[in-house]
């Protein structure tokens, strides 16, 4: 029984983590940013969107964020939106804005205090977790974790999505 389960799970993963399933519509959501303004994903149709899920306690997230901020600075005029989504829960919400101010990041920061949005995109809730959404609102790429060099792949995929 256990071997069959293992085989099924592995086959399922190998068979389905393929580009054929990367064209799904991104789940819509509405979150508030640090200033209390509503951000509605559906309103960003026509833009290339990067959803970057993180938390103040997550080391790999802190390594990835400077790259996303740089990418956002370089490409926002070309139609890129980076939505940096904090999954810090209500107790540690006071730490989020000071962290962003300290690091001088310019991308919008949204608060997902109930983990509702990350629960939809990444039920395992591993951090960091990155989702690339094309101009039509389809999920183009997802990645969990961060290791040096991942930012190059993300930048290339964003470049491709921004290309006319």
């Amino acid at each position: 029984m256990s071997l069959r389960l293992l085989s099924a799970a592995l086959a399922l993963g190998l068979g389905l983590a393929s580009p054929a399933f990367a064209a799904d519509k991104a789940a819509d959501f509405t979150l508030r940013d640090l200033a209390g303004q509503e951000v509605h994903l559906a309103d960003l149709s026509g833009k290339v969107v990067v959803l970057s899920f993180w938390a103040t306690w997550c080391g790999p997230c802190k390594e990835e964020m400077p790259h996303l901020n740089k990418l956002y600075g370089e490409k926002k005029d070309a139609g890129l939106v980076v939505l940096s989504i904090s999954t810090d829960d209500a107790r540690s919400a006071s730490k989020v804005k000071p962290f962003i101010e300290k690091m001088g990041y310019s991308f919008p920061v949204l608060l997902d205090r109930e983990s509702t949005v990350i629960g939809t995109y990444n039920p395992a809730k591993t951090l960091p977790f990155t989702v690339l959404i094309d101009r039509k609102g389809n999920i183009s790429h997802v990645a969990s974790g961060y290791n040096p060099g991942d930012e190059v792949a993300i930048a290339q995929k964003v470049e491709a999505l921004l290309a006319p």
């Binding site: 829960d89 209500a90 006071s94 205090r113 109930e114 983990s115 629960g119 039920p123 809730k125």
Partner: peptide
């Protein structure tokens, strides 16, 4: 899930981590 304010009254979160 629901969380109010800083969580003193209600903080039901998806803490699967």
């Amino acid at each position: 899930y629901a969380a109010f304010g800083r969580g003193a009254a209600l903080n039901l979160n998806r803490n699967v981590d």
